[in-house]
């Protein structure tokens, strides 16, 4: 894997996102439900920022706000100093559920963004081909999404996002629903991609091991309404391998402190009956012997 030197970058890292005191609620008047409350954090350019919190805590709402699908009720979000007013090709979301178009082949799915913007040029075709090769799907480029495995679909989706060269990649639990083996491979794969391209990324997950393995910076958020509980710099050197990270003392230390912070939040959401939250509680009690 190429070491990080400015020369390996097409552009200097761009896409610093500032979330400034953002609150968001759905509904009006006394029916209003506050989902996000006074959230403030920065997604640093060129870094992989991971947000972790109990499931159902409003992380996806934050993603919709950053993507520009919705406007926050209070506060502001900006990218490189410019306020976000709507969806834009500088921020691309890879959604929780697969959103590959089933009527287009893997290759045509990859090309969709440039085509929609009228950039169907030979250069973009070359780039699409190299991206499809980069995600290891050259032999499957003419297959339709339903003919591909879950992991392959995820890789096509990454390629479809990356071809647009967005300043920021936003990934909403992208590996959820994959089997454990595929998930591990995809984590290593995405991590390697990040180490190569240093693209600004905002990654949302409920999986603590995934979070620590991927993250440069870890943002721990609370149960609904979403608030930032803590920001942890994951100063584990890159390139990282999954096998190493389990042995890494620093990583385990971060994991322990993150888990204890999450534990309290998970308990709240556990009362509400969240599956992911109960997983946290399990993991935590296994580590510490207390519940």
């Amino acid at each position: 894997m190429a070491e990080f030197t400015p020369a390996t970058l097409k552009h200097p890292p761009q896409g610093e996102i500032r979330v400034d005191n953002v609150s968001h609620s759905y509904g009006v008047g006394k029916f209003a439900k506050e989902v996000v409350k006074d959230c403030g954090f920065t997604i640093e350019a060129g870094k992989l920022t991971v947000m972790i919190g109990p499931s159902g805590c409003g992380k996806s709402t934050l993603i919709r706000l950053i993507a520009g699908f919705e406007k926050p009720s209070k506060g502001s979000i900006s990218i490189d100093g410019k306020p976000i007013t709507g969806p834009g090709k500088d921020r691309l979301v890879v959604f929780q559920e697969t959103a590959l178009f089933p009527w287009m082949s893997a290759y045509n799915n990859t090309l969709y963004g440039p085509r929609a913007r009228g950039e169907d040029t030979p250069e973009i075709h070359r780039e699409a081909q190299s991206l499809v090769e980069r995600v290891g799907l050259t032999a499957f480029r003419n297959k339709y999404p339903t003919q591909l495995s879950g992991g392959m679909q995820r890789r096509v989706e990454l390629a479809r996002a990356m071809i647009n060269n967005p300043k920021v990649m936003i990934l909403d639990e992208p590996f959820r629903g994959l089997d454990a083996m595929t998930k591990a491979l995809m984590q290593e794969y995405y991590s390697a991609l990040h180490e190569e391209f240093h693209q600004t990324a905002f990654f949302v997950t409920t999986d603590i091991d995934e979070a620590i393995f991927m993250a440069d910076r870890l943002i721990i958020v609370s149960n609904i309404p979403t608030r930032v509980c803590a920001v942890v710099e994951v100063d584990v050197p890159r390139p990282r391998r999954l096998v190493d990270i389990y042995e890494n003392d620093r990583a385990n230390q971060i994991k322990m402190s993150a888990l204890s912070m999450l534990h309290e939040e998970a308990m709240k959401s556990f009362v509400g009956g969240s599956k992911a939250a109960s997983d946290f509680v399990d993991a935590y009690s296994k580590r510490t012997g207390k519940t």
Binding site: L92, G113, R117, N164
Partner: peptide
């Protein structure tokens, strides 16, 4: 949503 996001 994905299509909007990709600039359509």
């Amino acid at each position: 949503r994905a299509a909007y996001c990709l600039g359509a």
